[in-house]
Design a protein around this nucleic acid. Structure first.
Lengths: 194, 194
DNA sequence: AGCAGTAGTAAACGTGCATTGACTTGAACC
DNA sequence: GGTTCAAGTCAATGCACGTTTACTACTGCT
């Protein structure tokens, strides 16, 4: 049964291959970082020729920036869902990655990768700052920015411990296991009664 | 005043230049990561020829490993000073870096840098695991390993936010400013009353 | 069917890197 | 003072990478 294994609407589709490049690049950059990921790796993962990266994204750096853009919008969207009561739950979900979006924590990991471009680093700073402010505002305490940034730091650190460093038992903890500690961390830092 | 600017006991001292290489390499690796640091950079910083790196440390990877070794022993030593009551204080000090050792947080940053060598990554895991166990033990709660690892994650995340990402106000917070939030974080996660 | 334009490929180019081997300079010892 | 060995330099090698240029082949149009 070689019956048209994928509906095959088009065998040559620029938009589709562009998206494919973006996806596999996100995965590589998140896992390996910018410098150690080669454009040949990415092209091979996508099953296309290397030259297409330069064509669709101008350069390796441009592709990286495009990946970061997707991560930024995802993270901003998640931050907008936060209320004073559900911070820990939203974070636990983001850290583990839900079934419907299997690589959700890729976005967090991408925040930690840098290409050396100062412009891009500034965008990263802006996003982190915006999310911190959002968190601080959710607590009702307008002076809580520093504490909110520490909560975010913990998020990023947990991401590293789970994905890159793979320290057990944190690396394989489930969302439920993570929820209680996270709640305690957050109420300890942002809670009303200290 | 060209009077013997440095006691000049020896103009050619293998042990001394070896140590110098180690120091500047630590700094570069911590700030830039492994892949983006070149051996020429390191040699120039130390004021010696590139070939000496291969001679004294076998390879770039060997030099990186030597840097990590120094970071590991430092971190283990710091962890041994921890008691149930002083965790936040020790961590705040480690995060900011005291006057007597101006680049103390370099060690934490090095923990986050990887060369891709699986063997080295395992050493890293071992250190983090040992410190987590030490922390968990200090709380008197034998089941607190996961929570201790989350505390450590926060440490690493804060290090990233301060050094690489430079997110304000966390990036320039003083040790005193950091102490209270850290205490709350730790008592929230590891404290007896939850 | 034939044309035109775009999606995709292949190979080469130039550069920057880590590493190596032959070489030079300095210092300790007799 | 001359010899010897280690400390340090210099230049070359080879490789992997990002990018570019010239090319092929597929698709839609008339």
């Amino acid at each position: 049964m070689t019956a048209g294994q994928e509906t095959a609407p088009r065998r040559r589709d620029a938009a589709k291959t562009r998206l494919q490049l973006l996806e596999v690049a996100r995965c590589r950059f998140a896992r390996q970082g910018y410098a150690t990921t080669t454009v040949r790796d990415i092209a091979d993962d996508a099953g296309v020729n290397v030259a297409l990266i330069s064509r669709y994204f101008e350069s390796k750096e441009g592709l990286f920036k495009a990946c970061l853009d997707t991560a930024f919008t995802e993270i901003r969207k998640d931050a907008d869902q936060v209320t004073p009561g559900n911070i820990a739950a939203v974070m636990a979900r983001k850290l583990i990655g839900a079934e419907d979006s299997p690589r959700r924590q890729e976005g967090l990991l991408l925040l930690l990768r840098t290409s050396g471009d100062e412009r891009v680093d500034e965008m990263r700073r802006d996003v982190l700052r915006a999310v911190s402010e959002r968190l601080a505002r959710a607590t009702g305490d307008p002076t809580a920015l520093l504490r909110a940034e520490i909560v975010l730091s913990a998020m990023l650190g947990i991401t590293m411990m789970r994905s890159s460093l793979r320290v057990q038992p944190l690396a394989t903890a489930t969302e439920e296991e993570l929820l209680a500690p996270l709640s305690d961390l957050i109420s300890g830092l942002l809670g009303p009664a200290r």
